[in-house]
Design a protein around this nucleic acid. Structure first.
Length: 390
DNA sequence: CACACGTGGAA
DNA sequence: TTTCCAAGTGT
């Protein structure tokens, strides 16, 4: 059997010439690598880039994070999904400052004890930030190795995972783990892509068993996944330019994010039962729209209702708030709820000018709402159209 | 170990 | 349209 020379030097050379220029590759500090890796968990590079730049502007270092309230991290995280991540960042930031002299430990075992840092991120921090020879196995690395060695078993489960970890470890050099690791990722992202890999351009072609066998498209072996469908009912309850919102607890799903009242597969009536202590009778209850939203492995059909509250009750010492529509923009919502809010906002403003909000800037146009024209043929004796915040 | 956790873009 | 998925982690 012919032993091939190590491919690592060729990968590194390829990376240093063809690798992507990314914001987190400008300077390799542990802080910058850490934030990038957390943002990149299950999230595309193209989506992360602008959010990463924003983040670095607002939180340039560890100490800026520990001074900020969690809610501000959540706000910068809007729409990115997997909202446990900003929680983990916040907790880890405090742990680092309080117990680790404000710097990351440079050993794997300690790193993985920190919130949000698992096997992959720990490896990435060691390899990319500190240039130490540890494997960082993400989806790209998995795919590249599955093809290089034509691995015909799944790499997600424990056994395959362990095998892959040893395999990657055995191919690491002591030198330049940073370029080796990022080279694997860029190769996976740019050449050894999930579909139609560009093997003609691959610097590792002569090492690749799958390419030799023609099995690239079947590597790595994929695990099937199925999607459930679900119905969601949401309620936008309005009173004088304000909407009833509430903050979620620190739970598994959308922890600490704000939302409008909603529930799975309920009616507006049952939903109203849960919030009636904060609002009196509703008028003009109507369905104002429907949209679909997929999250995790679920496809949700969302039914959005609107109701005008004749009177409201205090929300003291509860997670509920009455908030002006303009001020909603300052709170962190998930995309699921942002969609509903956009639809509700559109409905609300379309009552005045057919949907063209122009440059009203929130509610300013309504300071003198009594003079507004009302749509023809509708009874608007009470409800939103005759009462506005001053 | 299996499953939950978000989202929006690509084919 | 539907399916798949993208620099995984926590429980």
């Amino acid at each position: 059997m012919v032993l091939k020379k190590p491919f690592a030097p060729f990968l590194i050379e390829w990376f240093e010439e063809h690798g992507r220029h990314l914001p987190w590759r400008v300077e390799y500090t542990s802080y910058r690598v850490w934030i990038a890796e957390l943002m990149l968990c299950q999230t595309r590079v193209s989506r992360v880039i602008p959010r990463y730049l924003e983040w670095m502007e607002r939180f340039p270092n560890l100490f800026s994070l520990t001074r900020a309230p969690l809610e501000e991290l959540l706000f910068l995280w809007r729409g990115l999904g997997y909202y446990a991540r900003p929680h983990h960042i916040h907790r880890t930031a405090h742990l680092l400052v309080e117990k680790f002299q404000g710097e990351f430990p440079q050993d794997y075992q300690t790193l993985v004890t920190l919130p949000g840092i698992g096997q992959y991120v720990a490896g990435a921090i060691l390899a990319i930030a500190y240039n130490l020879p540890y494997p960082a196995i993400d989806g790209n690395v998995k795919r590249v190795f599955a093809r290089l060695y034509d691995l015909s078993f799944p790499l997600e489960k424990g056994k395959g995972q362990k095998f892959l970890f040893r395999l990657v470890s055995s191919r690491l050099l002591q030198e330049n783990a940073r370029s080796f690791t990022q080279g694997l990722m860029d190769l996976g992202a740019m050449v050894c892509t999930p579909r139609q890999p560009n093997c003609g351009q691959c610097p590792l072609k002569q090492w690749c068993l799958a390419c030799a066998q023609g099995t690239q498209e079947y590597r790595p072996v994929r695990i099937s996944y199925n999607r459930r469908e679900t119905e969601i009912t949401m309620f936008l309850i309005h009173h004088q330019g304000m909407i009833l919102i509430r903050q979620r607890l620190k739970e598994r799903f959308l922890p600490n994010l704000w939302e409008i009242p909603w529930q799975e597969s309920g009616s507006p009536e049952t939903l109203y039962e849960t919030v009636k202590e904060f609002t009196g009778e509703l008028t003009e209850v109507q369905k104002i729209g429907e949209f679909s939203h997929h999250y995790c492995n679920r496809l949700a059909t969302v039914h959005l209702y609107w109701g005008n509250a004749k009177t409201i009750r205090p929300t003291d010492s509860s997670p509920y708030r009455w908030e002006t529509i303009a001020a909603l923009k300052n709170r962190p919502f998930s995309s699921l709820h942002e969609k509903a809010l956009r639809m509700g906002e559109h409905f609300f403003f379309s009552q005045f000018d057919g949907g063209n909000r122009g440059n009203m800037g929130g509610l300013s146009i309504m300071e003198n709402g009594e003079g507004q024209e009302l749509p023809q043929g509708e009874s608007r004796a009470e409800g939103i159209f005759l009462h506005f915040p001053r």
